[in-house]
Write a protein that binds this DNA or RNA. Structure first.
Lengths: 151, 151
DNA sequence: TGACCCATGTCAGGATTCTGACATAGATTG
DNA sequence: CAATCTATGTCAGAATCCTGACATGGGTCA
């Protein structure tokens, strides 16, 4: 294996470490979600809807970090399986507010405990102060990155 | 806009914040890399090779967080464009060590300054202590997540 | 009121990535 | 030494995602 211990600049890059952590988190989530027949994006969508009922397709897409098109096909699948409901026509404008069904709420509950366990494991070696510190630091990074993107 | 300020649990989730930061970082990198005709994965591959010459296809794939197959097609493109070289046959085993050409090194330099500026911007509002704190925290998260993955 | 601009939902096409599988090389273990 | 295990490179197919585009609804502002 190429595990030479040569000190490398990538190992000191916070950006690389951020991607590494995010990748590890996603892998861990996929692992615990797979036995439940659920993907990360599907879980994210359900969780979003549980906390903010009536979200639109576009809002769900932004919240789950996918495109509107991808979220659209997912919503159709969720609707077909009876996890969510959408009005046949928009009550106002073109926005179709989506809501969880009792069935969707149940499948979400099982997934939530699985994901919660992953998050607990991730925060295992961290003190309370470190967790709130990480919180502020990540928020600062996000704000700084979004500032200069010409939006 | 659905920007209701309703306090939501997702906003308090470190996992969600992690994904948000990683997504913002990737978007910022794509934005500064696009004018140079370079993608994030391509930059990652070149940067990896600059710091660890002779890396194999599989090692590059792991380092850039893609599959071996994706890295393989990227390497073929990089070789065709003259940014990297690979021996026609493996000197030992099946591993084909990859190396940067002078041309590849030049295109990497331009990309590096662009990416460096993004990282600087990301760390703008953070003190030195906060940066090293983030470093330790992220490493702890990665370690904790990798521990219980049945590898 | 009408023109303009932004956001939404949706469609089609293409590009990218992943999943699954195979044969082979090297290390490991008995 | 032989068998097993792990890792590599590669192939083919499928699934996923994105880019580009369109028509429509709503808000803004003259």
């Amino acid at each position: 294996m190429g595990q030479e211990g040569v000190g490398v600049d990538l190992e000191t890059s916070l950006g690389y470490l951020l991607k590494e952590a995010s990748s590890a988190l996603r892998a861990a989530m996929e692992q615990v979600l797979r036995p439940l027949g659920m993907s990360v994006t599907r879980y994210s969508c359900l969780e979003l809807l549980a906390q903010r009922p009536g979200l639109s397709n576009s809002e769900l897409a932004r919240g789950a970090f996918v495109t509107r098109q991808s979220m659209n096909v997912l919503l159709h699948a969720l609707e077909r399986e009876g996890d969510v409901t959408r009005p046949v026509e928009a009550p106002v404008g073109k926005v179709l507010p989506t809501r969880l069904t009792p069935r969707g709420r149940r499948s979400l509950e099982k997934a939530t405990v699985a994901v919660r366990s992953v998050e607990v494991r991730m925060l295992a070696g961290l003190t309370e102060a470190e967790q709130s510190g990480a919180f502020r630091i990540l928020q600062s990074m996000i704000r700084s990155l979004r500032d200069g993107d010409g939006s």
